[in-house]
């Protein structure tokens, strides 16, 4: 907390507001992860933490270091871009893995492989039984 003392009041308020917003969103997202009923519903919960949850904390950090060191800080933007680009990839892969597993077990809640109008039906991943 060495540099916090010479932080102007407006910057302290802005940093705190973004910090609280970001961590509250991350917490609510994780609460959703524990409370929602099915896997596909739970898939939506972490995106709260990775969209504006990360955005809030990254903004807070950028404001803090830009004001205290009196120079622009870019590392946080990298973290923000990195999280924005990687989260869809992980969530999509996880969703596809879950779909594949549910179809292999012929779970009735999951829609079949979208094959309308094609002849792909014979090698659809759902046709296991």
């Amino acid at each position: 907390m060495s540099q916090a003392a010479d932080l102007p009041l407006w910057a302290a308020i802005a940093v705190s507001a973004f910090l609280l917003l970001g961590s509250a969103l991350a917490l609510i997202g994780t609460i959703g992860l524990t409370r929602l009923q099915s896997f596909y519903e739970r898939l939506h919960a972490p995106t709260l933490g990775t969209s504006w949850g990360t955005g809030g904390v990254v903004m807070a950090s950028m404001i803090f270091f830009t004001v205290t060191e009196a120079r622009p800080v870019f590392q946080e933007i990298l973290i923000g871009i990195f999280v924005t680009v990687t989260t869809p990839v992980t969530l999509m892969l996880l969703a596809q893995a879950a779909l594949h597993r549910d179809r292999a077990e012929a779970n009735p809640e999951v829609p079949p492989w979208a094959t309308a109008g094609t002849d792909l039906e014979k090698d659809a991943p759902g046709a296991v039984d």
Binding site: H44, L48, S51, T84, A114
Partner: peptide, 20 residues
């Protein structure tokens, strides 16, 4: 489009069939 749909909370991209 996949990045947009997935990073928007509330919608999740599951799979895309490029043949149709």
């Amino acid at each position: 489009l996949a990045v947009i749909v997935t990073s928007t909370p509330g919608t999740a991209w599951l799979e895309y069939n490029s043949s149709n």
